[in-house]
Amino acid sequence: MPIVLFRVDERLIHGQVVIGWGHALRPERYLVVDDDLAESAWEQELYALAATGVDVEFLTVGGARDRLDGWRADPTRSILLTRDVRSMARLGEGGALADEQVNLGGLHHEPGKSELLPYLFVTREDREELRRLADSGAEVSARDLPDASRVPLADLIEA
């Protein structure tokens, strides 16, 4: 199980991921999948600051799709992060994330978003992308920290 966590979290690498999930899963690498970030050196530097000694790679969605199978076979324990639902849904197109657990960890409030959980606010487009992700075979659920309870997608949005 070399990709130990797939997570959608707007904050990407931050306290909950590094401390909360990091202590539980002991990752050796973070894979940040985002088309814009993959092109932006100064943003990568900022995000990498929070990783405290763990390697970070930044990839486009297309680049990540090509390497998914390689990571799965690689013994290095990785946490894969996207900062929006859309990138994760694109990653999962064609069943690439079939039967994987996909964790929704944090999308903050903005005007026009509706609240699913105190740490999860979504737009109408996010809802559609979530359905698309689930339809592609991924098991989607929300959980901010490893010791919190897991809320399945079906309990968050109507199918």
């Binding site: 707007e10 904050r11 990407l12 690498i13 931050h14 306290g15 590094v18 401390i19 814009d36 932006s40 943003e43 900022l46 995000y47 600051l49 929070a50 405290t52």
Partner: peptide
């Protein structure tokens, strides 16, 4: 916006 989004994580965790 992108700068503020990227910088808050490291500033939070380093400060904590």
């Amino acid at each position: 916006r992108r700068f503020k989004t990227a910088v808050r994580g490291p500033l939070g965790s380093l400060g904590d």
